[in-house]
Amino acid sequence: MNIFRFAGDMTHLCSIVVLLLKIEATKSCAGVSLRTQELYAVVFVSRYLDLFFTFISVYNTVMKVFFITSSFCIIWYMRHHRIVSQTYDREQDTFRVAFLVVPCIFLALLVNHEFSMVEVLWTFSIYLESVAILPQLILLQRTFNVDTLTSNYVFLLGAYRALYILNWLYRYFTEPGYSQWIVWSSGTLQTAIYCDFFYYYVVSWRKNERLSLPS
């Protein structure tokens, strides 16, 4: 495993820890999209089905179990925690997830490496992950609640994507025969969506800064 891949995994892990800590410490999930969190749970479950069939490494297994359990933990907080669930922006978080899930199902059925249950589900998870952040970005733009912790979460997720691109480049040049165009194209789309968010974030941050200057 190269340093980019490891750093990418760690920022991904940190992003989830930051989100959980924010929810636990502030007893609030204001500005967090439950729809995005549910999409991530679907992504992890459909991708990590291979936990039952193939063993890659202890690291791999531990990380997969962590991603699945932490995503369900966040969903539980947002849906069922007595105090946290009341802070959920239900009226603002209205993105129609079917617009993302249904095209991803069709695309996974059409474009995959092998037409088998596990492989199609894996491909579906790759496609879905690339767009799963959209409800979160729409919610951030709507509520304009650029809460530091929520934006840290989104920033860390973006850093994870960028590091994964470096990891792919590194592996492409160092491992003969390493090539994975489904993951590359979805990952590039995903990173582009984050760049769009960064642009929006910087613009609103600069606007806020200008507003707070003494007149």
Binding site: N60, Y164, Y178, I182
Partner: peptide, 10 residues
């Protein structure tokens, strides 16, 4: 193969 290339990633 391309099928297995990404399977060790998360």
């Amino acid at each position: 193969s391309a099928k297995s290339a990404a399977k060790d990633e998360l």
